[in-house]
Design a protein around this nucleic acid. Sequence first.
DNA 1: TGAGGCGAGGGAAACGTTTCCGGGATGTGG
DNA 2: CCACATCCCGGAAACGTTTCCCTCGCCTCA
Lengths: 334, 334
Amino acid sequence: MTQRRRPTIHEVARVAGVSISSVSRALNGNTSNADMVARVNAAVREVGYVPSVVAQSLKTRHTGQIAFAMEDIGNAAYLEMVRRIQPTLRDEGYRLLLHSTGADVEDELGVLASLSQNYVDGLILCPLRVTDRHVEALRQTAVPVVVIGLLPDDVPVDNVRADSRVGARLAVEHLAEAGARRIAFIDGPLDTVPGRARYDGFRSGLAAAGLPEDDDLVRFTDFQFDAGRRAARELLTGHPDVDAVLGANDLIAMGVLHALRDLGRDVPGDVRVVGMDDTPLAATSFPPLSSVSLGSADRGRIAAELLLRRLDGDDAPPERVTVPPSLNVRESSR
Amino acid sequence: MTQRRRPTIHEVARVAGVSISSVSRALNGNTSNADMVARVNAAVREVGYVPSVVAQSLKTRHTGQIAFAMEDIGNAAYLEMVRRIQPTLRDEGYRLLLHSTGADVEDELGVLASLSQNYVDGLILCPLRVTDRHVEALRQTAVPVVVIGLLPDDVPVDNVRADSRVGARLAVEHLAEAGARRIAFIDGPLDTVPGRARYDGFRSGLAAAGLPEDDDLVRFTDFQFDAGRRAARELLTGHPDVDAVLGANDLIAMGVLHALRDLGRDVPGDVRVVGMDDTPLAATSFPPLSSVSLGSADRGRIAAELLLRRLDGDDAPPERVTVPPSLNVRESSR
DNA sequence: TGAGGCGAGGGAAACGTTTCCGGGATGTGG
DNA sequence: CCACATCCCGGAAACGTTTCCCTCGCCTCA
C-alpha cells in the first residue's frame, strides 16, 4: 500500500491542465462546458481524487452531520427512532452522530453546548428531564434543534411529542371496559417526563372509567424488567384482588407477566396486563402483550423531517407535533 | 439571540492582547507561562470562544470521529456492541458515527471507500457477507479498520470474532447431554457468515454427540421472529419426533417457542429449545430461553479498544481476537 | 470593421486552526 | 561587562476547499 498523501484538487487541476477553480466548478456542477467536465472527471478518476469533507466544511460552514442524543440507545423506544432517523437523514446526504448521555444531565447539557456549536448542522434531542438549564441552553443553540419529548410551550424549538398521558389513559379505559375493577400501575421514576405523564394518564383513565384511585396499587420504580418484576410481585402478593396491571413500558410489563406466572395467576384469565411503547418485545412475549404504541418510529421520522426542513432554510415559527397514541390489543388483555 | 458569527481565535487574541499563536499554544498546553494561560483563558470566557473542530481537523488531519457500520442497528447483537463501543470511544474523546447499511453490499462498500477516506479516523465494520471486493477495499482503506466477524486469514486487518461455530456446537452438545436425540436447527441464510458458521457448528455438534445428520431437520430462513415461527411450525408438524430445536438466534428461537405453544407441545418437557446471541429477549421470554452468548458486548468493547490502540500509533501486525462463546442455560432446556 | 457585451476560466483570498521559524529579551558564565 | 545560550512570543505559512473578481477571447450587432 502506498503511503502517499491523498490527492488534492490541485493534483486534479494539474493533471487536467486546468485551474483549481475550474475543477471545483466542474465537480459542483457550476460549469456548462461539457468538455471541461469530462476532462476534470477523467483526471479525478486518474488520480483517485476524493474531496476532503473537512476542507469543504470549513469553507461552506456546514458539516453534513446531525446528532441524535438520548439517554441510552439500549432503550427500545430510542432504538426505533434511530432506525427511522438514520435512513431519513442519509437519503438527504446527512450522516448521523450518535450520542448516549447515560442519563447524565451534565453530559446532556454538554452535548447541547458543544455539539451544537460544532461539527453538526443540527441536533435531535431526547431529554429525559427538562431543567431550566436545558431550556436556557436550547434558547442559545447555534444550530437547529428538534426535541422529542415534552417541552414547555414557551421554548422556541421544534418539538415532537408522544402523548403518553393519553396513552396511559387509553390503556386504563380499555382494561376497565374489559371488566377490570382493581387496576394496578407500575411506573418508572415520577421525576422523569414520561414517568410523570404516564402517572397522570393513569389517574385520568381511572377517573374516566369511574374507578376510585388507590395509591396502594401504584408503584414507582425503574423502567426495567427486573424492577417491574419485583414491584409486581410485591404489589400482587399484598393485593391479590388486583385484576389488571398497567406497566409503564413493555419491559416493566414483561416483568409483571413473569411475576404473575410465578404467583400462579393466569393472564389474561385472572389478571390482564398492558404495557407501553409497543416494542418488538410485546409481540414475541407470551402471551403476546397488549401495548400502547406511542409511535416511536413515527416520532423519529417526523423529527428528522422537521430538522431537514429547518436545514433547508425554513424559518417558520417552531412547530409542535403530537403523535397520537394507539392501543395494540393482544392476548394479554383479551 | 445575537446573529453574530462565532468568535475565532483571532478575537481571543485581540482581547487578550497576544498573538493567535500564543492563544493556540495556551489552549493546547504548549506554553509554560502561567500568566499567559490565565489571560488567554479569561479572554476565552469573555468572548465565549469555542474552537472550530472543523478547522482543527483540517490542520491536524484527524477528525475525532469513528464510524460503526453494520447491517441494522435494530439487531440486538449490534445494539449490544454499540452500547459498549460508544462509551469506550467517548472516554477517549472520539465521537461515534452510526451507519446502517441495510444489508446492501454496495452501500457497505461505499462506506468503506468514502467513510474511510473522509471524516473518520477509524472504522468498525460488521460485514454480513465478505466478498472479494470487501477484501480488496479493506486492503486499501486510508484509516485503521477493525472488523467484527469472520475474515479470511490473509486480510491484514484487526479482527474480532465470535466463535459461533463452537457456540452452536456447545448448544447441540448440551441438548444431546440432556437427552435429546432428534435435534432440529433453524438457521438464517446459509450465504451469510453467521448462517454458515452456525450450520457448521450444528453439524459438528451432532458428530461430537454421536448423532446422525438429518437434513430434514434443518431449515434455512431469515434471522427473524416470524420466519422462525413459520419454519418451526412447518418442521415440527412434519417431524413430531423432534425433541429439541436450536434457533440460530434468539428471535428465531422465540418463534420456535411460539410455534411449540401453538402446537401444544411443552417446553422443555416435550421439546427443549436453545437460542443464540443471549439477548435481553432470552431472559424475559417464557420459559426463559437458554441461549448461547457470543459475547456481543465484549466484542464491541474489544473492537473499540483495538481501534483506539491503532489510532494511538500501534503498528503491530493485525490482531485476531476470538471471544469464546458460553452457554447460558435457562428453563427452556432444563 | 470596430465597439460592446457576455461567458468561461484563472488568480487569489478566505474559512479557522496549528506549527515552523526567527527575532528579541532575559539569564548565565567566563 | 560581554558573549552566548535559552526561552517566549509574534509573524506567516499551510491544511484543501469554495468563490469572488478580473481578464481575455469570442460573438454579435451597428
